[in-house]
């Protein structure tokens, strides 16, 4: 189902969910949960958005039923730790590549995914100052390195 333009802000979180469907279903589940909450705030009134969000809710309910034995899905406190660890793992991988002077698409994506997963952490409550700083840094790094590679420059 195509994403209504009003919900464009959640497209990357939904893509991350799709990419983790097999690799890490808990990541996929919480990315969709974040997209659901953010989407409802963006627009749940127009028919096209309502239709999209109802489908997304169906998908979330199906996932929760199918993954009933995953503690990180049945217990949000476990889910919170899981998403935070995963985001940190992504961040540290990209940061290590960055500090070693290895600039490539994969590390850009890891920085960006880490920043998206910090967004996802907001489903569990207010973000910590550290979360906010990590997100800001990761998003800036992803953009900066992407621009440098596109222009044939070496990132600093």
């Amino acid at each position: 189902m195509s994403l209504p333009p009003q919900l464009k802000a959640i497209q990357h979180h939904l893509r991350t969910a799709q990419e983790h469907e097999q690799r890490d279903p808990a990541v996929a589940y919480y990315c969709r949960l974040y997209a659901m909450q953010a989407g409802m705030k963006l627009d749940s009134k127009t028919p096209e958005c309502r239709k999209f969000l109802v489908k997304l809710m169906d998908q979330l309910e199906t996932m929760k039923n199918a993954l009933g034995n995953h503690e990180s899905i049945t217990q949000e406190i476990v889910g919170h730790a899981h998403i935070e660890n995963y985001a940190l793992k992504m961040f540290l991988y990209a940061d290590n590549e960055d500090r070693s002077g290895r600039f490539h698409k994969n590390m850009i994506k890891s920085f960006y995914t880490a920043s998206l997963l910090v967004d996802v952490l907001s489903v569990f409550g207010e973000l910590s100052e550290e979360n906010i700083q990590h997100r800001k840094y990761a998003r800036w790094k992803a953009t900066h390195i992407h621009t440098c590679l596109k222009n044939g420059e070496t990132p600093q």
Binding site: L33, M36, Q37, M40, S44, K45, R50, L53, V54, M57, L60, E61, K64, E76
Partner: peptide
């Protein structure tokens, strides 16, 4: 009147989504 009814339908559907979300998260 039509717009009032339309807004009421939208609001009910929105409530339904909110309720499903709360149930999903075991918050009810």
């Amino acid at each position: 009147t039509g717009s009032v009814v339309g807004a009421s339908v939208a609001s009910t559907e929105q409530d339904e989504l909110s309720q499903r979300l709360a149930r999903l998260r075991d918050q009810v």
